[in-house]
Design a protein around this nucleic acid. Structure first.
Length: 264
DNA sequence: AATATTGTTCAGCA
DNA sequence: GTGCTGAACAATAT
């Protein structure tokens, strides 16, 4: 699930549950999800410290520690956070567990283990090292800047939107949603899009993310004319009388309406 | 039982 | 060096 709106929700979740509490224990359940830092060093720096502040860049969540280090979290395809107290609330695939002095626990759960947690000194260095592009929401991207990102680019617009080194935060689901709302087929070539097409994509990117963030990325709460809850081949298009088609673009399943979404 | 899955990285190539 | 494509990674659900 974790694309930009989901991670923004995780950030708020962390803010409302886990800040300013003393960490009294850290359990690395599976070291595969730990990045460059060693599990021992991670434990050493977390223990006795507190989470003070949160930031997000694209699909990455950062928590600033009272000892000046930053905890970085990426959620892969199946990661999420769970703050709980009672044993019966332990999620099924905990990879990292942080214990607070109030008896509560913060679990990083990641079934498929494609997510990563790390500890760094310098956030901008981390973002550079990961080659992350601009965060369209956090960095308040203008249309001019957006449009310039796609100058002299090749490939499909969907692949471009999902390229994290161009824009950080758009994944498969929201790329489909933005293009569905912008009435442009995901397989359209970037070079064939005109200024108006790009403007529409820019505007829909902002409105879709704003809406998704406002409902904490809960799909059930999204408007009825969103593709998200109709992402199945043969399903009726929620915007027109067309049917939803499925096609592989850039190696990923893409869903779109071939009636109101124009192929360029 | 084969197939699909919301993400990133890296090899291969132009 | 840069940019693009597709496979690999892993564990589960249908």
């Amino acid at each position: 699930m974790p694309e930009l709106p989901d991670v923004e929700y995780f950030r708020k979740y962390l803010n409302s549950t886990s800040l300013h509490k003393k960490i009294i224990g850290v359990e690395v359940k599976n070291s595969k999800i730990i990045g460059r830092v060693s599990p021992a060093a991670l434990k050493k720096h977390l223990n006795g410290s507190k989470l003070k502040i949160t930031k997000r860049h694209g699909k990455n969540l950062f928590a600033g520690l009272s000892n000046k280090k930053w905890l970085t979290m990426h959620f892969g395809m199946t990661g999420y956070l769970k703050y709980y107290k009672n044993k019966e609330d332990v999620p099924g695939h905990v990879r990292l567990l942080i214990n607070f002095d109030n008896g509560y626990h913060l679990a990083y759960d990641c079934m498929r283990m494609l997510g990563r947690i790390d500890l760094v000194d310098d956030l901008s260095g981390y973002i550079k090292m990961k080659k992350l592009g601009i965060d369209p929401i956090e960095d308040k991207l203008s249309f001019k800047e957006f449009s310039e990102l796609f100058n002299n680019r090749n490939g499909s617009i969907k692949t471009g939107l999902m390229n994290q080194s161009i824009l950080a935060g758009i994944g498969n689901i929201y790329a489909d949603e933005i293009l569905f709302q912008a009435d442009i087929q995901p397989g359209s070539n970037i070079k064939k899009l005109n200024e108006d097409d790009l403007k529409k994509i820019y505007q829909k990117m902002n409105s879709v993310f704003k809406k998704a963030i406002s409902v904490n990325a809960d799909h059930e709460e999204l408007p009825g004319n969103y593709l998200l809850t109709h992402r199945k081949p043969g399903e009726d298009c929620p915007k027109c009388s067309g049917k939803i088609k499925k096609q592989t673009i850039g190696g990923r399943s893409s869903y779109f309406c071939n009636k109101h979404q124009k192929k360029k």
